[in-house]
Design a binder for these strands. Structure first.
Lengths: 164, 164
DNA sequence: TCACCTGGGTTCCACTTCGAAACTTAGAGG
DNA sequence: CCTCTAAGTTTCGAAGTGGAACCCAGGTGA
């Protein structure tokens, strides 16, 4: 039942994905719209109507996603009050959410490189204070930068075999 | 209508997202299962039943996603023939797909850091040949490594204002 | 030549999720 | 108490999903 000749150990197909970090992260932010909502918050939109209008998402789905993100601890509800208005909620990133910047940056960089005009990116990532531009890279413990094609998934110490 | 005090220029809410690279990349790989399928192929599974069985995805959806990925130029159909069997298709990554390694690596790293036992990752990324481990990092043109919280989206030269 | 096996899909159906638009709600101000 | 506003809810037809059964092409053995 094994297929010799593949670069990855044959045990990959026995790896229990219930344990997999990619799947876990996707179950947190992998639904339609979730990452785009987070990106809007990263970009400085914090209010329901702002996000709904800019993204063109249905209000029903936005309600649901915001609730999930708050429950997941990625967004935090704060109150704001504009003059002459009652207090309303605003959504802000939690520290846990800041580390999703890597995911968003990787998606942005892929789109800029392969799906758009590389020289005319609509959005840039700036390094706060410094003003330089930020990009994503893969780096090996050996110190070198690594190409995507030079990376191979391997089973780690926490790998669990499927039970069934 | 603008909200002073935010770090991002007020024009963000006027940015036309039809042009946005994050949205473009997500429309390519943002559907449920798509990234997990690609990860299986990265890991060395290339055949319909292998992927369906390991992922637990319905065969109907797998058929659809593979077709989309081939149409999008991320997967390539090749034929293989096992002794005593007719020739059947296998799915392999195209060069364009290799650059999605950044996205997968970022998702993996987030899950390892925030959702699992960091010291016992089920999957590691190895640098081909070298044997070292690969991680994702954000780096500024100034040369420094950058934290997720120190990155701010900014409008680039290709930014387009919404028409409506 | 014909039944059988295998892997790679299709088909069908019940169920969930989505999008669009209308509707509701809780204060603040007049 | 009437109105205004932002933040949801509701409703309903359309689209997407999971599961299981079914189909199909080509290679084999009888």
């Amino acid at each position: 039942m094994t297929t010799p000749g593949y670069p990855v150990p044959m045990e990959w197909r026995e790896l229990d994905l219930g344990n997999c970090s990619v799947a876990a992260t996707l179950s947190l932010v992998g639904e339609r719209w979730t990452l785009l909502i987070l990106r809007e918050v990263f970009a400085g939109l914090h209010r329901f109507d702002e996000i709904a209008d800019h993204l063109g998402i249905s209000r029903r789905v936005l309600t649901e996603r915001l609730k999930q993100l708050v429950d997941a601890g990625l967004l935090e509800r704060r109150s704001y009050q504009e003059a002459g208005q009652r207090s309303r909620p605003e959504y802000h990133l939690t520290p846990r959410a800041h580390d999703l910047q890597w995911v968003l940056a990787a998606l942005l960089q892929y789109g800029d490189t392969h799906l758009g005009d590389t020289a005319n990116a609509p959005v840039l990532l700036e390094h706060s204070g410094c003003g330089g531009h930020v990009h994503v890279e893969l780096r090996c413990t050996c110190g070198q930068e690594v190409a995507g094609s030079a990376v191979e998934p391997a089973l780690g110490p926490g790998a669990v075999r499927v039970s069934s």
